[in-house]
């Protein structure tokens, strides 16, 4: 019983250390981005500069999302998806930051396509 408890603690420690390493990895690999890349179904649909204020309505057969770029940050301001998770997501501005609308297979990512 006692050794199981010890193993549990060890398991949690390992998980948390891995999470911390991942977190630091992502944090330090982030730079302020300059492009907003919107992709649908894994394919890049639009690339918009982050420093130009725009409002873009992205339509696909799965639905509609309205993406607002203002003051160097991007966010989804409205969508007709069921869960509205993408609308509630906070605004993004740093390289690698992502907003996902899973029902619409839509991904908004800052500087997403640079490496490929």
């Amino acid at each position: 019983m006692k050794s199981r408890f010890k193993n549990d603690i060890m398991l949690v420690s390992i998980i948390l250390v891995v999470a911390l390493i991942l977190f630091l990895f992502f944090k330090f690999s982030l730079k302020t981005g300059d492009m907003v890349v919107i992709s649908i179904n894994g394919e890049t649909a639009f690339k918009l500069p982050l420093n130009t204020d725009t409002e873009k309505t992205v339509k696909s057969e799965l639905g509609e999302n309205v993406i607002l770029i203002k003051g160097g940050i991007a966010q989804i301001i409205s969508a007709d998806c069921r869960d509205k998770i993408c609308v509630h997501h906070e605004a993004i501005s740093k390289s690698g930051e992502t907003i996902v609308c899973l029902p619409h297979k839509l991904v908004v990512v800052i500087n997403g396509e640079e490496e490929t």
Binding site: I15, L22, E43, E97, V100, V109
Partner: peptide
């Protein structure tokens, strides 16, 4: 979704 950037969520989801 074909985007590996979603891995970004991994630390907090862990």
């Amino acid at each position: 979704l074909g985007t590996k950037e979603i891995g970004f969520y991994m630390p907090v989801l862990t």
